[in-house]
Simulated assay, not measured.
Amino acid sequence: MEARDKQVLRSLRLELGAEVLVEGLVLQYLYQEGILTENHVQEINAQTTGLRKTMLLLDILPSRGPKAFDAFLDSLQEFPWVREKLKKARKEAMTDLPAGLFGGCEVASLFNAFEIWLIS
């Protein structure tokens, strides 16, 4: 998952937790798409409250690969207001990213490559 998407999930963590997102088809969709394993689903379902289930899902998602955020958005068919809030936060994060969030090394490499191109 991209750093920007991780930050979106982190910044909306409490709001997402309040929505009890794990009820319904969210977990099953994420399992179907290979984002969650069977063990993940069992571990999440073993939690005692909807809040704990959602928080565990939010803890697991960032480590589940580059398609996890988009699959999570797709899984939120029953929660269109949450999906829109996440999309809006993601779009704002894209426009608000300072250069440093691209990774100092990557930005420095781009500048170095540009300087080499100018010199050539």
Score class of each variant (00 low, 15 high):
100 G>W: 05
95 T>H: 11
54 T>Y: 14
76 L>M: 08
102 F>A: 14
98 P>I: 11
111 F>D: 03
83 R>F: 03
99 A>P: 00
65 G>N: 06
54 T>N: 04
112 N>K: 02
75 S>E: 09
109 S>T: 01
119 I>Y: 12
75 S>N: 07
100 G>K: 14
45 N>M: 10
68 A>M: 00
120 S>C: 11
58 L>R: 06
60 I>V: 15
52 R>E: 15
73 L>F: 11
72 F>Y: 13
57 L>W: 04
112 N>Q: 07
72 F>W: 01
104 G>I: 08
46 A>V: 03
90 R>D: 07
83 R>A: 15
111 F>S: 00
47 Q>E: 15
93 A>R: 12
97 L>A: 13
119 I>D: 03
68 A>R: 07
54 T>P: 11
103 G>D: 03
67 K>M: 04
79 F>H: 15
76 L>A: 11
91 K>E: 15
74 D>Y: 04
43 E>N: 06
113 A>W: 06
111 F>C: 03
108 A>K: 08
106 E>Q: 09
101 L>T: 02
112 N>G: 03
53 K>D: 02
67 K>F: 01
85 K>D: 01
107 V>D: 07
95 T>P: 00
83 R>S: 09
83 R>D: 01
94 M>G: 14
68 A>H: 02
49 T>Y: 11
47 Q>V: 05
84 E>I: 08
63 S>E: 07
104 G>Y: 04
92 E>D: 14
103 G>H: 03
120 S>P: 00
120 S>V: 10
91 K>L: 13
64 R>A: 02
98 P>C: 06
94 M>Y: 10
55 M>L: 15
82 V>N: 00
118 L>F: 07
96 D>Y: 08
94 M>S: 13
95 T>M: 08
104 G>C: 06
114 F>D: 02
43 E>S: 07
45 N>S: 08
